Amino acid sequence: MDIGIGLPGHARWTDGTTLVDWARRAELRGFSSLSVSDRLAWSTPEPLITLAAAAGATSRIRLVTSVLLAPLRANHALFAKAVTTLDQLAGPGRLQLGLAPGLRKDDFVLSDVDYGTRGKQFDQLLDRLAAATAPGDPVGPRPATPGGPALLFGGTSKATLRRIVSRGTGWIAGDATVQDVQDFAPQLRQAWTAAGRPGAPRLVASVMYALGPDAEAAISDAVGSYYAFAGDEYADYGISIAYTRPEQITAAIAAFDQIGCDELIFMGNDPDPAQVDLLAEVIGL
């Protein structure tokens, strides 16, 4: 199982160069992927711009959106151009787009995008992205990756299953538990086989982490604030399933590996780039 790391974009970072430092350190320490999350009504950095900076600072590590709220990109042709441009900057095979329809209405209100039709808009965006990756489309450049970057979809709905088996390479589960993966993976594999797709869908899970003497405070501040919109109970749950001790992290790696995950991404919650090294040391990178 691959081990990736996620930028602390939803935490209280104040200097964008810190995120670039994270990217450099993540590649040097041998993490498989660098991911970035997405929200509009929050201080989270814009994912494609952030990964463009990371692409310029690195040369090998995969670059992942985990996950990008696709329907907010209302100009589908412009979004397709941004994606193919980023794919060119990163080089073949490095960019992987984790995409989801989004849950929070405030993101859509701020975007003047209709929340109720976001699924339909999502599918239209995917159609436009597919067209932009084919020869002859007026929207350029063509992607460096043949056929365009790999697509992973988040969520557990029937629409998610449909998008994965018809357009994607797999599933990406945010802030996941082992049980979450065990609950969804069997129906995903069944749908994949029924659709006649060869092999198996890629399973990627992400979890929250912080390490060091201030780890619990960092988790409480970052995760608690980020999930406060859903109420204290949900925020407390998010805090409770985050990883703050080395033994928790090694146990999580063993557990997600045992159930067949292809990659586990540890999302940062403390902006200090030293967090990259602390995690690398725990897992032996």
Rank of each mutant, 00 (worst) to 15 (best):
T65P: 09
G136S: 07
L28T: 12
L99N: 03
P273G: 06
L278E: 15
D107P: 06
P92I: 11
S157A: 08
P101G: 07
I219N: 01
A194T: 13
V178H: 00
G268R: 02
C261W: 03
G91T: 03
G170P: 11
E233Y: 08
S35I: 06
D270E: 13
R163G: 08
D262G: 13
D175C: 09
L285Q: 07
A255Q: 12
D112T: 01
R128G: 01
I265E: 09
T156V: 15
S32M: 02
S166K: 09
L99K: 02
E46M: 11
E247I: 04
V181N: 05
T250F: 05
A242P: 09
T156W: 09
D214E: 14
V83Q: 12
A57Q: 09
V20R: 00
P146M: 10
V207C: 06
A52Y: 10
H10D: 11
R60K: 02
A130G: 10
T50M: 15
P201R: 05
F31T: 04
G93T: 12
F266K: 02
P271L: 09
I49A: 14
D236T: 14
L152N: 05
P273L: 09
G56L: 06
R60M: 02
F31H: 04
L95G: 01
P201Q: 10
A52W: 11
K105W: 02
P92D: 10
R39Q: 13
R73V: 06
R39W: 03
L126G: 06
R25H: 00
D257F: 01
D257R: 04
A90Y: 08
R118Y: 04
F122P: 01
L51P: 03
Q121F: 02
A159F: 04
P135M: 07
L103Y: 04
E247P: 01
A195L: 10
R12S: 06
V36S: 04
Q121A: 08
D38T: 00
L264A: 05
L28K: 06
R197W: 05
H10G: 01
Y237Q: 05
R167H: 13
D262C: 04
A70S: 06
V207I: 08
A26P: 06
L51E: 06
A215D: 13
P45T: 13
W192K: 01
E216L: 12
T85F: 07
A210C: 05
G268M: 12
G170C: 11
L34T: 04
P143L: 04
W171D: 07
F31Y: 13
R60A: 08
G199W: 11
E216F: 09
L125C: 05
A100T: 10
G168V: 08
R197M: 12
Y243E: 12
T44V: 15
P201F: 10
A191V: 09
P141D: 12
S157L: 07
G9N: 07
A54N: 08
P92C: 08
Y234L: 14
A52N: 13
D221L: 08
T18A: 13
D123S: 09
E281I: 01
A54C: 15
A200G: 06
R245Q: 14
G199I: 14
Y243C: 11
Y115I: 03
D183L: 11
R142N: 07
D221K: 01
N75Y: 07
F184K: 00
A134Y: 02
